[in-house]
Amino acid sequence: MKNFLIPTTLKDDTICAVKSAISQAKSSGCEIILMMVSDAPDTFSSSGYLREMRTGLTASQETVLDTCRYIIDHTPNCKIKVHNQYGLSSPIFKRIIDVFSVKLMILTHSYKQETKRIHQYVVQLAANQKCPILHLSLEQYKDDFNKALYIENASGNMHVKDVQQFLSANFSFEIVSQTASFEDNYENFAPHLSEAISKYDIDLLVETRKGEKIKFKKKKTENLNDKLGLPVLSLYEEMA
Rank of each mutant, 00 (worst) to 15 (best):
P41I: 01
P41M: 01
F44Y: 07
S45E: 00
S45L: 02
S47M: 15
S47G: 12
G48A: 02
G48R: 05
R51Y: 02
E52N: 03
E52L: 04
E52H: 01
G56K: 00
G56Y: 00
L57C: 00
T58L: 03
T58S: 05
A59R: 04
A59L: 06
Q61Y: 02
Q61G: 08
T63G: 13
V64H: 11
V64Y: 05
V64D: 06
L65I: 14
T67G: 08
T67V: 08
C68F: 08
C68W: 05
I71C: 02
D73G: 08
H74Q: 03
H74R: 01
T75R: 00
T75A: 03
N77F: 11
C78F: 09
C78N: 07
K79A: 11
I80W: 06
V82A: 10
N84L: 15
Q85R: 12
S89K: 13
S89W: 02
I92P: 15
I92T: 15
R95M: 14
R95G: 14
V99C: 10
V99D: 13
F100H: 13
F100N: 11
V102Q: 01
K103S: 08
L104Q: 03
M105P: 03
M105V: 10
M105D: 01
I106A: 04
I106Q: 04
L107R: 05
H109A: 04
Y111Q: 05
K112L: 11
E114P: 04
T115K: 13
T115P: 07
I118K: 06
H119P: 02
H119L: 09
H119E: 05
Q120M: 11
V122S: 09
L125M: 11
A126L: 10
N128K: 10
Q129R: 12
Q129D: 14
P132V: 06
I133W: 03
H135N: 12
S137N: 07
L138G: 15
Q140G: 07
Y141A: 12
K142T: 08
D143R: 04
D144E: 13
F145G: 06
F145I: 09
F145E: 07
N146E: 04
K147E: 00
A148K: 02
A148C: 02
Y150I: 00
Y150N: 02
E152W: 10
N153S: 03
N153E: 01
N153D: 02
S155W: 04
N157K: 13
H159F: 11
H159G: 14
V160K: 13
V160L: 10
K161G: 03
K161C: 06
